[in-house]
Structure formats: structure tokens, C-alpha cells
Nucleic acid binder design. Structure first.
Length: 141
RNA sequence: CGAGUCGGCCGGGCGGCCGCGUCAGGAUCUUCGGAUCCUGCCGAGGAAGGUCCGGGCUCCACAGGGCAGGGUGGUCGGUAACGCCGACCCGGGGCGACCCGCGGGAAAGUGCCACAGAAAGCAGACCGCCCCCUGUUCGCAGGGGGUAAGGGUGAAAGGGUGGUGUAAGAGACCACCAGCGCCCACGGUGACGUGGGCGGCUCGGUAAACCCCACCCGGAGCAAGGUCAAGAAGGGGUGUUCUCCGGAACACCCCGCGCGCGACGUUCGAGGGCGGCCCGCCCGAGCCGCGCGGGUAGACCGCUUGAGGCCGUCGGCAACGACGGUCCUAGAUGGAUGGCCGCCGGUCAGCGACAGCUGAUCACAGAACCCGGCCUACAGGCCGACUCGUCCG
RNA sequence: UCCCGUGUAGCUCAACCGGCAGAGCAGCCGGCUGUUAACCGGCAGGUUAUAGGUUCGAGUCCUAUCGCGGGAG
């Protein structure tokens, strides 16, 4: 019901897109984005982006593993990332799948630091998209 | 004022902007399933945690008997129940308020008690002590017997002290004490306590070793389970009966993944069910076993009103119960309960003129079916009762 | 949600029925060699995960806690 993103409602991306509409929910979408999407990383987080040629709102998902910390810390990191992503949602192209994975240093990072690293990562992914889909082995392994 | 014991409670507050989830109302769109937007209410904890116990709830099972298995362990109460809680008893600790205790049985049986020691569970006798006999170089040696007071070992050596007694000794005998068993009286619901009498003189420890006794215990778990969709692990049709009209029971019929291997069987029974095993009972003709391949895992209900919270009165030492009033207070599902900022409040550091200023920081920790407990983590703070010591009145 | 296993020297593991905690590798010292490796001799290294308890005595038995690993749906 809520995942009825059949493109039936033509989405007019003018104002804020609610996170509920662009929330990634299915396991295959996560697997698709992580396995087949492009990747860019920083010490605190890693992002995977997979673009699709469908006219639906972009889907964003977060992965915070148990190595980051306890339940309280993981919730805090995920909520911060979600709020940060909300402001940057307009930059994501239609139909793409984005997964943001948090690394253990994200537990002790401040929000500004997380925001800066998220900007770097998104900028790297989106700029590369404009160019050529050549084999991309991003700098660090 | 100082030191301490016990119990209860809180665990940041206020405001602004922007968001998220459930529900309610409204608007727009709609392929009538729903989607989007606006407004409003509510939106993590004392431990939500560990998963150590006990229940509710759901499904499966339940003629009965026996044997295994697990748990609990002073008594009496409380409770839906408990391994929890309360009061009391016994033992131990503290000057005291108080605290701690897996606290049944070792004369039902079996096992074990290393090293040391003569001997570790039958009582016995290494060094000793004493008596008798023989020999004697008169120091003693050998043999037979009596002892357990003394020495030494050990965690533990078969009551302790004193006396009588004796060849030396010994509960052999006596007094007191400790301990055991039995009986009686009184108090107590009871564990038990107090007092008296009798007995033999004394009986090791270990049951968190096997075990015995008493009492208790079906299995799984909300990913339970149900409805719909889908589906090749089951589904459909017809008839009869019942019906709360949702459906249910019974009988009959039809269809029921592919390939390979194997076993048994069709009134002499394969196979299955009854928590495990046995007896026993029941169902019973292909719903058997193994391997490889193939298929599926979506939505909704369950889902939050409950052994519920608060206040008062009464009963009870208390745990708790009865009655009356009042309140409704999270329901997510890649998982909402948040992000940023201002003021105040703690804590720490620095400067200080002891008003204050500046900076840093905010304990443990996040519901997932729901309750009652236990245990564990926790910055800081508040309240009450009581004990001991000092000083003053 | 439910259920198992495990924790011993720096590492990998032993230790019977409760009775003095041990082996291999690694480490250090010495020897051998022109030097290193190998080899030979020796040495040190432990709160038996933590805290209580039972016992004369606990790595072992009991209870609780903590950590790690694994399994089922």
C-alpha cells in the first residue's frame, strides 16, 4: 500500500520530498544499490548510488552495523544522517537508489562533520555520473 | 555536628523553527484498492537490557498405568503463579540500628577422604607405659599378654575438665559441662522454644558425590496462530446433518511437482499418533525413506484496557487484600518517538575583586505480544525512619 | 524470539573420579659457527574470564555476572 510507487502519481519535485515517500524498504533494493551501484567513501561513511531510468522519487536507505555501537548510538547516527539527507534530497536524480553506510568513526563524529563528509561523497558520486560510465576504481581501496 | 543502617522517589526543565509515526477530523485526486495535503491529540525506561524464573494468550497433544527426566528444599502466610515477596524460627556477624545463610535426610544403602601418619572408618597400636616367662656381658634383648593416659601426623584420631581407681590404664566408676536419642509438661497454627525425667556413655566429614524423602512440572512459542492473495507439500466438487448464517462435522468422488535409488506392505497389517521409553490404546492403504533439481517467503488481523495507574477508607505486624471514586497513558515493521538553536539547572577546569565571567560537558541506556519478579548497568540529586558517638539545654 | 557451546602462559592446546597447573611454538640468557638460520643447554612467564559459595582442599562441583563463538525459525 505505502510502497505504491507505480509512477501513477506524477511526482512534481518542487518542495520538500517527504522521507516517507523516498524511504528504501525492500531488501533487494539494498542489495541492488550496494552490489551494482557506484561507491564513494570517507572515514565516517560510505555511499552507494545506482541510477535507474524510472520517473519515481529516489529511494534512500541507511545501514548502520553493530560495529558502530549500541542501539542508542546506532539510532542517533541514523537519525542524524536522515535529517542531513532530507536537505540534500533534491540533488538526487529521479529513480536512483542511494544507500548510506555508516562506519564506526561516525559514532563520535559531530553533525557538521557528518554533513561535510556526506557532501563530499554525494558530490563525488553525482559529478562522476555526469561524465562517462567508465570503469571507476575510486582512489582508496 | 560527625560516623553509619534501612526504605522510598526523581533521573534535566522551559521555549522557538523544521521534521517523523499511530489515531481522529477535513480537503483534493482516484484505476474506488487507495494516494497526497492541512489541522489536532498522543508518542521510550527504571532498568525498555540480560533472558534467570513464573504466568496470561495462541496452536498442537491429552483413556490409563509404569519407568525415566527436570525443578524446588526451615516454618507459616501473600499471590494468577513463582526459584519472588513478607513475618517468624534456627545458625553466624556487628557496641547498635541492622545484615548474611541452596537452611530436608549421613543409625536406608553405595562411593570418596590425596600427602603425612602405626592407623582415615572395621576400629586398630609406631614410639611408649605396665605385667609375666626366657636369656643376660646387668646397659638390656627376645617371646607372650594387658592398655590407650602421653609423643608425633593430619582438616579430621572415637567426648572435655577434675577426681576415684589400677601393675599400667580405660565412662570401669563419680561430679560438672558439651553433645545424641526417647518420653512428659507448658507456650506457639507451625518451624521451634522453655522446663523436667530416663537411657547408653559418645555414634567422623562429604548429599553444590550417587542417592533417599516431600512437593511441583505436557510440548512449543506472536516468525505462536488466523484470514486473504499466491502457490504443485494440498486443493476442489457433490450430498446429508447441525448452525449464532460466519461456518462446522461426516460420507463419497476428482485432481495432486520432476527425475533417480531403496525398503516394506494391503484382512499374517507398511506407516503414523498419544511430550521421551515400555505396556497399552487409537488411526490405518501408498500423505514411506533418501539424494538431486525446481517453487515460495506479500498484505491484513493478532496489537494493545490490563492480575492497569492514582487517591481515600477499612482489615492485616507486614507482604497484601476488600470496597468506593477517578484516569486512559506508544503501537513501529529497513522499524516513528528526532535535528538545530536560545535561556535556566547540574558537573569539571581556568581567571578571580570571592558579586561573577569564560570554556567544556550532560549517567546507564532505545519498546517490538503483554504482565509479576530476579539480576546486571547508572552522572547527580531529593525525602523519610532509625542507631552509635561528642557537645549544649 | 528461542536454544547450545566455550573462556587455562604472548599464541595453539593438555590436566583421570576434586589432591603440588603442564606441553609445543614464541621470548630471554649461554654454547656451537667467521656470521645468521638450524641444533644443544638453561631461564622466566599464570588472580585458571570475574565475584561469591560447598569442601580439609576447587582449573574441576554449585550460583550469579561478563566476554566470545555457533545454531533454529
Amino acid at each position: 500500500m505505502r510502497s505504491g510507487s507505480d509512477g501513477r502519481q506524477p511526482y512534481l519535485g518542487e518542495v520538500l520530498v517527504l522521507p516517507s515517500a523516498s524511504r528504501m524498504r525492500r531488501g533487494d533494493e539494498f542489495a541492488d544499490a550496494i552490489r551494482r551501484g557506484r561507491r564513494a567513501g570517507r572515514p565516517t561513511l560510505v555511499a552507494h548510488l545506482k541510477t535507474r531510468e524510472i520517473d519515481v522519487p529516489p529511494l534512500v536507505g541507511f545501514v548502520v552495523s553493530k560495529a558502530v555501537g549500541g542501539a542508542v548510538v546506532r539510532n542517533q547516527v541514523r537519525r542524524r544522517l536522515r535529517h542531513l539527507m532530507r536537505a540534500r534530497l533534491e540533488a538526487i536524480p529521479q529513480g536512483s537508489l542511494l544507500v548510506v553506510r555508516a562506519n564506526p568513526p561516525a559514532a563520535s563524529a559531530r553533525s557538521e562533520h557528518l554533513a561535510a563528509e556526506l557532501d563530499v561523497v554525494l558530490d563525488r558520486l553525482l559529478r562522476r555520473r555526469g561524465s562517462e560510465p567508465r570503469t571507476l576504481t575510486d582512489g582508496r581501496s
